[in-house]
Simulated scan of single mutants.
Amino acid sequence: MRKGRSHDLGKMNLPQLWKAYLTYPTILLYFSIIIASAAATFWFWTSFWAAFLPMVAVILVFPVVWYVIHRWIMHGRWFYRNPLTAKMWKRIHWDHHQDPHKLEVLFGSPLHTVPTASSIALPLGYLMGGWSGAFSALGTAVSMACIYEFFHCLQHLNYKPKWDWVVYIVQLHILHHFHDEDGNFGITNYLLDRMLGTFYRTAKDRPRSKFVFNLGYNMEEAQRYPWVMRHTGAPPRHRPDPARVPHTPQFRNPQSRKAAKLGVG
């Protein structure tokens, strides 16, 4: 992994994704947490409702949590302006926008995702159903993270979706990565984008952002706040590798064709 790209979603098909996804260390860790959480739920079992209601609460609350994190933390510029948080900000999202098809930086680091999910799910579940509810909530939160990450992979995959809903969320996510990063923060759920004014359907709905690939961390910012650039070992890029830009002939996969139809680039 340290020697270069090992999983390039832009060159992978669906069977290859399944193989990579089901054997990826982060996902295997999530699976182990889900199994352990299920076991703990039954170990502390008191009633059906004590386990079930926290699951419903997590399903309702976590889309809000993910939206807040994506919009105000992952895209929050003040994180790269602080040497204590610059490395975290680089890993959790900047690397992904610099290279959207690299699987290793698409998945969130468990060092960030597991504590975040636990700090919200465990107290919420405990308040509703004791320890049984706490662990059922945690298992639900991590299960949702697995689903979220799989569809996020699909949105960058060399694959033409068959379901209209998947086509829809792929198109919206392409716009987020290749047209204007300040919108379409949802991955599978865009309700909050619609409610809070960050939703847009086509490239014609708003002008193209000059920060879509660097999230505002350009050379000018890197000179003032050098910590992300130091961790990267290279200057920030204002566009992906030329061979992978959606409107160039070299970038040939179903995602690029959809991007062209949307007017992205």
Rank of each mutant, 00 (worst) to 15 (best):
L215S: 04
W78P: 00
R81E: 11
Y225E: 07
D180W: 07
V68M: 06
S136K: 06
F42T: 12
P226K: 11
T46H: 02
I120L: 12
G133N: 04
D95C: 10
S119I: 11
R252E: 13
P207A: 07
S37N: 01
V245Y: 13
Y190K: 00
V56K: 04
I35F: 15
I34N: 00
S209V: 10
W227D: 12
Q223M: 02
H247Y: 12
G263W: 08
T23N: 02
S37H: 03
P254R: 06
V170W: 09
Q98T: 08
L17H: 06
P100N: 00
Y148W: 15
Y30C: 14
Q155A: 13
L127R: 13
P100R: 02
H101R: 09
M219C: 03
P226D: 13
G4H: 11
V65E: 05
W66Y: 13
H152V: 07
K261R: 14
L215V: 05
H101M: 09
L103D: 00
W45M: 08
A51G: 07
A50E: 14
R91H: 09
A137C: 12
K261C: 02
L60Y: 08
N253A: 08
D205Y: 10
F52T: 10
P15Q: 08
T85S: 15
L138K: 08
R224I: 04
V56S: 09
I92C: 09
T248D: 01
V167A: 13
A57Q: 03
H156V: 07
Y67W: 15
L9E: 05
A38E: 02
V61E: 01
I35P: 04
A243T: 15
H7G: 05
I59S: 00
P246F: 12
P246K: 00
F251M: 11
M1K: 14
I69A: 12
W94D: 15
L192R: 02
K258I: 07
K160M: 13
M229Y: 01
H7D: 10
V114K: 08
F151K: 06
H152M: 02
R224L: 11
W43T: 13
F251G: 05
T198A: 00
R77T: 14
L262P: 01
P235W: 04
S136N: 06
T113C: 10
P254V: 02
M55S: 04
Q155D: 08
S132M: 01
A36Y: 09
S132F: 04
P63A: 05
G233K: 05
